[in-house]
């Protein structure tokens, strides 16, 4: 088991190469900055360290919530509840699924495309994608940066607007077909 887990981790590191190159280029950039202008270099490093230490506890918290979400909500389970109904219940379920879905959006596209073939409406796909802008697991970080009032208003408006945008998309796509 340990070997398997280690192998998986190895693959992840391989995919991470592009991002690591980006860090490498940034460090090289900072190195040349040190040579060209030491004052700007020191100010930038201080600024960087200040920002990094501020977000670290929040990143740890986000990690814990991501693990819990992964344990509780499996993609196939969500598919089971969203495939059949498309009324208000379906809209609410789709929005909740959108809010709870973690990871990049394109990872969910094959699943949603499957649901579309099973009869999922364009409106529900839009609601799902739009509600992904509400990130429960990132809520503490959002409050940290923008405050409680902003975070609550923003999330509520996204939730409400997802239905309006869903209707618009359905009118323009299904209506014209």
């Amino acid at each position: 088991m340990d070997n398997k887990l280690n192998n998986n981790n190895g693959k992840g590191n391989g995919k991470n190469l592009g991002a690591l190159i980006a860090v490498g280029v940034s460090i090289l950039f900072y190195f040349s900055l040190y040579i060209i202008n030491k004052s700007i270099f020191i100010k930038s490093v201080n600024k960087f360290w200040e920002s990094l230490t501020m977000i670290l506890p929040f990143l740890f918290f986000v990690f814990i919530i991501m693990v819990i979400t992964l344990l509780l909500f499996k993609p196939d389970k969500i598919k089971k509840y969203l495939g059949k109904k498309s009324g208000i219940k379906g809209m609410l379920l789709t929005s909740v699924a959108g809010i709870l879905s973690v990871g990049p959006a394109y990872l969910w596209y094959p699943l949603i495309a499957d649901l579309k073939e099973d009869g999922m409406r364009e409106k529900l796909i839009t609601i799902f994608i739009y509600n992904r802008a509400i990130k429960l697991q990132l809520f503490p970080l959002m409050i940290f940066y923008f405050g409680v009032k902003f975070s609550v208003i923003e999330s509520l408006l996204i939730f409400i607007f997802s239905f309006i945008i869903g209707e618009i998309v359905e009118i323009f796509t299904v209506g014209n077909n």
């Binding site: 900055l33 930038s44 344990l71």
Partner: peptide, 30 residues
Amino acid sequence: RIAILKTWKSFSMSIPIIITVLLFISFVQV
């Protein structure tokens, strides 16, 4: 353990990007 590893996999991919962006923003701000 699998959930932690999966999360770490996607999380670890964003760490270098976060560092790059922070480095970039810090410089731009100065």
